[in-house]
Nucleic acid binder design. Structure first.
Length: 112
DNA sequence: AAAATGACATGAG
DNA sequence: ACTCATGCCATTT
């Protein structure tokens, strides 16, 4: 495990910039770092973000449908949905309500 | 070195 | 409107 995870670093940086109460999608994050079709890479990076020094709010990262795809990777239960609810994101049946309302576009914030 | 896998996206039927 | 098939780039076996 070298420390070259530049891709991960880029992805983590974007996810870390997601404000509380907001969510983002893999496609938008991938596009923000320059990987238009690297949606899978974003998810892959999330899989490795377990135990990182800065807590990565991967719970704010959902698929383009607003569905909590990786909820199973957080906790045994609906910990991911609970976290989002705590932050103010309306989650119903593992799916974000008002998705477009809480959707945060990294490209806009970063200024791509 | 090649093939398989992955917390997705998009297009076509 | 819904389901099936392909693409994408990096990591792992």
């Amino acid at each position: 495990m070298k420390d070259h995870s530049d891709i991960y670093d880029a992805i983590y940086e974007i996810v870390r910039k997601i404000p509380k109460g907001r969510v983002s999608t893999y496609g938008h994050i991938a596009a923000a770092i320059g990987m238009k079709s690297g949606a899978r890479m974003v998810g892959y990076a999330m899989n490795h973000c377990h135990g990182l020094k800065p807590p990565i709010p991967a719970q704010r990262v959902v698929n383009r449908s607003g569905l909590l795809t990786g909820k199973a990777h957080f906790g045994p239960g609906d910990e991911m949905a609970e976290l989002l609810k705590e932050e103010g994101v309306l989650v119903k049946d593992d799916q974000v309500r008002n998705f477009e309302h809480v959707l945060w576009d990294p490209a806009v914030e970063i200024g791509i």
